[in-house]
Design a protein around this nucleic acid. Structure first.
Lengths: 146, 146
DNA sequence: TTATAAAAGGACATTGATGTCCTTTTATAA
DNA sequence: TTATAAAAGGACATCAATGTCCTTTTATAA
């Protein structure tokens, strides 16, 4: 399972993308409200994202968060990597420190398939691909369709 | 990812099964050492397992942990359920409270496949099936083959 | 140029998971 | 019957994730 922070981050980035498509740069308050997360905590997460160049921001009046052209195809993997690290893609499902093909835990083969399947998803899906689904009405960002 | 407690629990149960096959009932100290977990913490987890009848125990001299006949085919699902709950089998990968087939988040379809794949594993694999792999030398419990 | 609105950032608070210590209960061996 | 070995259980400690509050920096509009 992804951490709460990662979930907030992904939802926030998708919202920023949707707003950017409307030529707008949302601010912390608007983002936090949309993703149903505490405002100050959301601010911290957004800070992490901009510090790591996954997104851009502008201070001052009329400022807010936005993507520039270099950041146009951000994978979920990159977000996870920055926010919570990528242990979930490497770790043994059984909790063993030394578990690999040569020295497998009893869950190794089956678990690897699941873990790699998840890795494939987050390497393929991007903030843009998720945002497009929402724009097309094929999916929703929060619980209230609106 | 499973919690550390769940990992300890599964490893502990497998070790108890292996020992039981040798007509032995290991105690907290021996179990903790084998699974490389703190002894007092291991004791708490074993307590949870016996309180929930996933395993049996005997106090006093010559006591220890063991399975009785009703507990002979314990699935990993039951262990996870008791130790950390089963949020990981229900939760939306995107963190939405209301996410389902009718109201899907943009990750819903792909994530469901992975999540259900994991569910399938833990409903199929049992403490016994894992222990058998170790007994057959097809897998290892801890990092040192011995 | 100044007031204002916004992100950045530092310090602290809360909570749950993990971990430790000590006492109580109980079964058995001596 | 008593001493001992073992699990059970209560109370507390530590740490990381999550969450809050307040100050600083900076860009823009007036």
């Amino acid at each position: 399972m992804l951490s709460k922070s990662t979930e907030y981050a992904i939802r926030a980035l998708v919202f920023v993308q949707l707003k950017n498509w409307e030529q707008k740069r949302p601010g912390v308050g608007e983002i936090a409200k949309e993703i149903e997360a505490p405002e100050a905590y959301t601010a911290k997460i957004l800070q992490t994202l901009t510090k790591n160049k996954l997104m851009d921001s502008m201070k001052g009046r009329g400022g807010g968060f936005f993507f520039n052209d270099n950041q146009s195809n951000l994978t979920l993997y990159e977000v996870i990597h920055v926010v919570e690290g990528d242990a979930c893609f490497h770790k043994c499902g059984f909790g063993l420190k030394q578990c690999n093909n040569d020295n497998p835990c009893p869950l190794h083969e089956q678990y690897k398939i699941v873990r790699d399947g998840f890795f494939e998803i987050v390497k393929t899906e991007t903030i843009r691909s998720l945002s497009e689904k929402i724009k097309q009405g094929e999916a929703v960002l929060n619980r209230l369709k609106k």
